[in-house]
C-alpha cells in the first residue's frame, strides 16, 4: 500500500512532531502550575487564546509578524498571569480540588465571553508566513517548522531554567516541599506568582504559534485544554519533562493514526490513551507519582 512509502512515514512523523511541540509547550505550562500548587488551571487554553488574539491584533493593525510579536505578547501575559495569581489563584491554593477548578473555570468563561464580545465567534487567522520547504517528496510547512522549533526552544529554556537557575530551583523546592521551602527563606507566594506567570507566558507563546498555523475563535480552547489534560496524564501529572514527552508522543500518535486510519480516530486517540493510561498506570508513563 502506498502509505507504507518511507517518504510518507517520514512526512507523518515530522508533522506529528511539529504539532506535538506545540502541545508540549501548552501542556508543560499546565503541568508546571499543577506541580507547584496542585491547581488544575481550566483557564490555561484561554490564556493561550489571549496570546493568539494578541498576535492577530498586532498583525492586523501593525503588520507585526507573529515571531516578533512574541517579544511583546509573552511578557505582557506573564504579568497578567503574575497578577492573576496574586489576586485570585493564591486564594484557592491548598483548598479542595473543586475550589481551584471552579475559580479557574470562572476565569475561563469570563475570558471566552469577553472574546466573543470583542471578536465574535468568527475564525481568525494570521497568514504572515506561508509556503513550505521541499526535500524531495517531503514537504515541510514553513510556519509549522518555525512554530515547532520555537515551541521546543521555549520549553527547553524553561526546563533548564527550572533545573539549573537558582530561581528555578526555588520553584522546584516549592513544588516538592512548600513548608520546607518557606523555612529555608524562600518567598513561597512570590514563587507561586512567578510560576503562574511563567505558565501563562508559555500558554501565550503557544497561542502566538497557534495563530500562525491554525484558524481559531474564542471558543477554540475546549479542544486544546482536553488534549492538554490527556498529555499531562500520559506524561505524569506535575512532571514537567513528562508533559514534554507526552506532548510529542501525542502529536506523533495522532499523526500516524490519522494517516493510517482516519482523522476522527486521531481525535479519539488522546482520550483513549488518557483512559488507558489511567487504568493501567495512573502515575503516567514517566512514572513520577503525585500522591494525594
Amino acid at each position: 500500500m502506498e502509505l507504507l512509502d518511507p517518504a510518507i512515514l517520514l512526512q507523518l512523523l515530522i508533522s506529528g512532531l511539529l504539532a506535538g511541540a506545540l502541545y508540549a509547550l501548552l501542556a508543560c505550562g499546565l503541568n508546571l502550575v499543577f506541580g507547584v500548587m496542585r491547581v488544575i488551571n481550566l483557564a490555561h487554553a484561554e490564556l493561550m487564546l489571549v496570546g493568539a488574539f494578541s498576535a492577530y491584533l498586532l498583525y492586523r493593525f501593525f503588520g507585526l509578524h507573529p515571531v516578533f510579536s512574541l517579544v511583546i505578547v509573552v511578557p505582557a501575559v506573564f504579568f497578567f498571569g503574575y497578577y492573576l495569581q496574586r489576586v485570585l489563584i493564591e486564594r484557592v491554593v491548598g483548598q479542595p480540588l473543586l475550589s481551584s477548578l471552579l475559580a479557574t473555570y470562572g476565569v475561563s468563561i469570563i475570558l471566552v465571553n469577553i472574546g466573543l464580545l470583542l471578536f465574535s465567534a468568527d475564525y481568525k487567522s494570521v497568514p504572515a508566513m506561508q509556503g513550505s520547504i521541499l526535500f524531495g517528496e517531503i514537504a515541510i510547512s514553513k510556519p509549522r517548522a518555525v512554530a515547532g522549533l520555537i515551541s521546543v526552544a521555549l520549553t527547553l529554556a524553561i526546563y533548564f531554567f527550572l533545573e539549573r537557575a537558582h530561581l528555578g530551583k526555588a520553584v522546584r523546592a516549592v513544588a516538592e516541599q512548600p513548608q520546607v521551602a518557606a523555612i529555608c527563606g524562600i518567598d513561597v507566594r512570590r514563587i507561586r506568582m512567578l510560576t503562574f506567570g511563567m505558565a501563562a507566558a508559555m500558554a501565550a507563546a503557544a497561542g502566538v504559534m497557534l495563530a500562525m498555523i491554525y484558524s481559531f475563535s474564542p471558543i477554540s480552547g475546549a479542544d486544546f485544554i482536553q488534549k492538554s489534560f490527556a498529555i499531562i496524564i500520559i506524561g505524569g501529572m506535575g512532571n514537567f519533562a513528562g508533559a514534554l514527552y507526552g506532548g510529542l508522543l501525542l502529536g506523533v500518535v495522532e499523526s500516524y493514526v490519522a494517516g493510517f486510519s482516519s482523522s476522527q480516530w486521531a481525535e479519539a486517540v488522546a482520550y483513549l490513551l488518557l483512559v488507558a493510561v489511567l487504568l493501567i498506570r495512573p502515575t503516567g508513563l514517566k512514572g513520577t507519582a503525585y500522591v494525594k
Partner: peptide
C-alpha cells in the same frame, strides 16, 4: 483519586 478521577471521567465522556 482527586484530579485523576476527574480527568478520567472527562475522558470517558469524550470516549
Amino acid at each position: 483519586r482527586g484530579p485523576y478521577f476527574a480527568i478520567a471521567m472527562l475522558g470517558l465522556n469524550e470516549v
